[in-house]
Structure formats: structure tokens, C-alpha cells
Design a protein around this nucleic acid. Structure first.
Length: 287
DNA sequence: AAGCCGTGGAT
DNA sequence: TATCCAAGGCT
């Protein structure tokens, strides 16, 4: 029974996969890596146009590595979490320098790159290099949990999650890679967090959660995060100013972003410490 | 190992 | 309007 779940997913995927730009034939491993980093906590819909512009400008890691980090941050624009742009730049430098400008093919080498963790390393290995690995993101965790009768997964990916996903994969590398993409797509389009469409789900017949009545969890599946008025908020406001600025700006130009000086100072100091902002004789700019 | 790290759309 | 959530990673 469980050994044909992958076929249900893969057959559905063949008919229903979104036409995402990085799924086009000819996409390089670098293109896949960029798409995965951009998609960390950012909806794929918003990533697509940014990905096109990025790959058009920097077709290989060496092209990006040759630029100042500030160019990556500005190009990142409003995708959010701009430290990802910084780490992607650092990853490009590492690939160009240590890997002959070729995206690594082993999980260990991928995880050694900045900004590449458990999920992204396996996603690149599977989708770029067509290897067999459990690719466990928030979508897959939810799908796997519901197949087993639970309404949702835990807060973070665990080794048990990887083992559970691995057991759904067929033995063949290419089949496994397709299955991983299919499970993610089902989670993103059908088995969604708040309004799942079980009537259209290719896995409904083998899903314990569906069989037991589709009870949605009560509280949020992740700890709710404050945002308004936090450092994160003010950091974002400061970065927005600096992205738009053509020249270094004096500190007074940043005073308008938030009314509390103390929080402004702390946010700015944090951005400088993170390497997202450079200070040049009392003026501030992207690095 | 909880908490931090942006942004915007949907409900 | 407020909350939830979206192809997570790092410390």
C-alpha cells in the first residue's frame, strides 16, 4: 500500500506541476540553488520574477562573486531576510574559489556553504543533481504528518521527519527526485495549512488524516512572532532607505524611519555587525 | 535550543 | 484589524 504512494504523487505532479521558471529545461545547478535560497520563507510566487532578474545578471557563481555584497543586497530588493542575500553571495565566493565554479554535489559540501542547511542542501542535490534524498520542507512535513493521521507537523524539522520522508521515496534516483518535488507541490497547492483541498488530493485514498475527518489544529503551527515595532521591523525600514539611496547617507537621514532613537540605534548597530550596512566617515551605505 | 531574522498576501 | 503563514538557517 505505502509503496505506491510515490506513484500517486509523481503521476499527479506530471499533470499539475506549476510552470516555475527554474523548472524549465536548461536550468543550471546554480539556478536551482538560487531558487531554493530565495524561497526560504518567501512565497514562490514572489520569488519567480526576482529569480529571473538574478540569473540574467549573474549566470554563474563567479559572476556574483565578482560583485560587492551590496549589489546582491540591492538586487535582493524586498524578498525579505536580506542576510540570505549576503550568505548567497558568500556561497558564490566559496563555489567560485573552492569548487571550480561548480555547485557541489554532496550533502556535506552543500551544507558547508553559508545559508545552505538541511533542507536546501538536499533540495539542490535532488533537483539539480537528480539524487535520492529526503527533501523535507514545511510542505513535506505537513503532508507526511497528515498521511500518518496527524493534523500538522512539529515546529522544526527533526531526524525523524527525514526518515519518514525517506521511506516514501522509490529506489530510483530520478523517481525519488520527482517524488520529492511532487510531495512539496502537493503540500503547497493541495495539502495547505489552513484550507486543504482533500477532494482534489491524489493521496486522499491513503491519507489517515483524511480518513479520520480532517480535523484542523487549533493554534498556530509555529510560534507567532511579533513584528511591528521590533528590531526586525526597524532593520527593514533602514534597509529600505539604503537600498534606494544612490549615495551614502548621514545618520540623520535614517532618523525618520522610527520614532524611538534607542531602537533605531540598536537596529542600525545590528545591521552593521551583520555586514548588511557599511559605515564610511559618518555616513551609511550598502557594503 | 528557543529566539531572531523581512516582507506581503490571504483570511 | 490582527493573525497566520510562506521551498529555513543560524546562534
Amino acid at each position: 500500500m505505502t509503496d505506491d504512494i510515490w506513484r500517486l504523487a509523481a503521476d499527479w505532479f506530471a499533470e499539475n506541476a506549476r510552470d516555475l521558471p527554474w523548472r524549465r529545461p536548461g536550468t543550471t545547478p546554480w539556478g536551482v540553488l538560487v531558487s531554493e535560497v530565495m524561497s526560504q520563507q518567501t512565497p514562490v510566487k514572489r520569488v519567480a520574477p526576482a529569480w529571473e532578474a538574478w540569473l540574467d545578471r549573474w549566470p554563474t557563481p563567479a559572476d556574483l562573486a565578482a560583485e560587492p555584497t551590496g549589489e546582491a543586497i540591492r538586487m535582493w530588493n524586498r524578498l525579505g531576510y536580506p542576510r540570505r542575500a549576503l550568505r548567497l553571495h558568500a556561497a558564490a565566493v566559496a563555489i567560485a574559489t573552492d569548487h571550480d565554479n561548480q555547485v557541489p554535489t554532496t550533502i556535506a559540501a552543500l551544507e558547508a556553504l553559508p545559508g545552505i542547511g538541511t533542507y536546501t542542501a538536499r533540495a539542490v542535490a535532488a533537483f539539480a543533481h537528480r539524487q535520492r534524498h529526503p527533501v523535507v520542507d514545511t510542505n513535506v512535513r505537513r503532508v507526511v504528518a497528515r498521511l500518518a493521521g496527524r493534523p500538522d507537523a512539529g515546529m522544526a524539522t527533526t531526524p525523524a521527519d527525514l526518515r519518514a520522508a525517506e521511506q516514501l521515496l522509490p529506489p530510483g534516483e530520478e523517481d525519488a527526485a520527482v517524488t520529492s518535488a511532487a510531495l512539496m507541490e502537493i503540500g503547497a497547492l493541495i495539502c495547505t495549512a489552513r484550507a486543504p483541498s482533500c477532494a482534489e488530493c491524489p493521496l486522499a485514498a491513503v491519507c489517515e488524516w483524511h480518513a479520520s475527518g480532517e480535523e484542523l489544529p487549533e493554534g498556530p503551527s509555529r510560534k507567532p512572532q511579533k513584528y511591528t515595532g521590533t528590531d526586525r521591523h526597524v532593520r527593514g525600514l533602514i534597509m529600505a532607505v539604503l537600498r534606494e539611496a544612490d549615495l551614502p547617507v548621514p545618520r540623520v537621514s535614517l532618523d525618520g524611519v522610527w520614532h524611538e532613537a534607542e531602537r533605531r540605534e540598536r537596529a542600525l548597530a545590528g545591521l552593521v555587525a551583520d555586514g548588511l550596512v557599511a559605515v564610511e566617515d559618518e555616513r551609511y551605505r550598502l557594503p
